[in-house]
Computed example of a mutant assay.
Amino acid sequence: MTVALYQAKAEFFRMLGHPVRIRVLELLQAGPKPVRCLLTELEVEPSSLSQQLAVLRRSGIVTATREGSTVVYALAGGDVTDLLRAARRILTGLLADRDVLLAELRAAGD
């Protein structure tokens, strides 16, 4: 692989590196949502959500369509759902391992 490809991959993962963006992607797994619904569920300032949605839109991971005065966001493809599921599995494994180590540490302290 070329350096440019590694750079593109790093930028992709950097794009995912914000909690609001991750939450937006998780919410959109259930289907397209208008901005007002995202605002209600996320409880963030409109300007903050707008900024994070712009990052996701520029990356091509979400799409935005206007329905009258409402902007509706959707995942650009099903691969995002697969990625989030994989991340959840990895994180679950990592956290489970930590629980095992924590239990061992507590038991060793007796």
Rank of each mutant, 00 (worst) to 15 (best):
M1P: 00
T2G: 13
L5D: 08
Q7A: 13
Q7G: 04
A8R: 13
K9N: 07
M15G: 12
M15N: 07
L16R: 06
G17L: 07
H18E: 00
R21C: 01
R21Y: 07
V24H: 10
V24Y: 08
L25T: 01
E26N: 11
L27I: 06
Q29G: 03
P32L: 07
P32T: 11
K33N: 01
V35C: 14
R36E: 15
R36F: 15
L38K: 10
L39K: 04
L39S: 06
T40Y: 12
P46L: 03
S47G: 10
S47V: 11
S48H: 15
S50I: 03
Q51D: 07
Q51W: 12
Q51N: 12
L53R: 06
L53W: 09
A54N: 12
R57H: 13
S59P: 00
I61H: 02
I61D: 01
I61W: 10
V62P: 03
V62T: 07
T63Q: 08
A64L: 13
A64P: 00
T65H: 10
R66G: 02
G68H: 01
S69W: 05
V71C: 01
V72L: 04
A74E: 13
A74C: 02
A74I: 04
G78N: 03
D79P: 00
D79I: 04
V80I: 09
V80N: 02
T81P: 05
T81R: 09
T81D: 09
D82R: 12
D82N: 04
D82A: 12
L83Y: 08
L84W: 05
A86N: 02
A87T: 00
A87N: 01
I90T: 05
G93S: 08
